[in-house]
Amino acid sequence: MRGDAVFPAVTFLAALAIIALMLLIVYQMTIVALPSLERFGAGFLTGTTWDAVTEEFGALPAIFGTIVTSLLALLIAVPLSIGAAIFLTELAPSPVGNVVSFLVELLAAIPSVVYGIWGLFVLVPLVRDPLQRVLGDYLGFLPLFQGPRFGVGVLSAGIILAIMILPLVTATTRDIIRMVPSTQKEAMLALGATKWETIWRAVLPYGRSGIVGAIILGLGRALGETMAVTMVIGNAFKISPSLFAPGQTMASQIASEFAEATSDLYISALIEIGLVLLGISLLVNIMARLLVWRATRGVGGRLKT
């Protein structure tokens, strides 16, 4: 039939359009970033000075801030998300599960600037006291918890990011766990396993690759999140070992300075930060693919990824 020839061609074009858009974005960004690329070269990635007056730009503190806040967010959000997802699918009575599921999805629908304002006026004071006070008083011997307790800083940014990726990771993990065939669980229970053993030995290993995927989705969102982070991170272009210190992320740097960036080199440097962010996101995705591939190798009942 004629349709059978046309249809694949059309879908192929649609797929091509996405690739073309992506290439176009990279091309356009590279063109604008060219002056900065030529001027600073690889030093852009290792430089720690960001000075619009002398036009000296290095992005390391922003790269550092992005990675630290995102990892902190994962550290907080992943155990919570997996716990919540297991509860929702395996343990909660149906009405409770439905209500909680609904609330989780509601969280995902809140715009990020609302998280930012909430973070600035509610979360940050709570982080300053009691969180930073307790951490500083009892664990202050660690460099992680030293320095002035402003409230705003890397710690607050990590927490707000954790809250923001929680719904995404929870909802995705929940769907993954739901996909585990009940025969798997029933077989486990028939062997005399407890509920805990069933979840730990049958459900989670079966869904492993999917759960890793869910975490990576969360990481992707954390890396690129802009507004909420900008409002609570304290926006200091510095690298500090302390989680209390104000920092900066790549996305918040661009959001803060783009509107008033006047010189060409300045804009160029900001666009180059965007390119670096794109590159890091790409790396994370490739790593995720590799992880999922390794995790699924040899595991029975693998999920299509």
């Binding site: 960001w50 000075d51 002035p148 304290g234 926006n235 272009f237 008033e260």
Partner: peptide, 14 residues
């Protein structure tokens, strides 16, 4: 002197 400078100080607010 610029619309955004290299601040020696502590915290940036949006």
């Amino acid at each position: 002197n610029a619309t955004s400078v290299k601040w020696p100080g502590d915290i940036g607010g949006q």
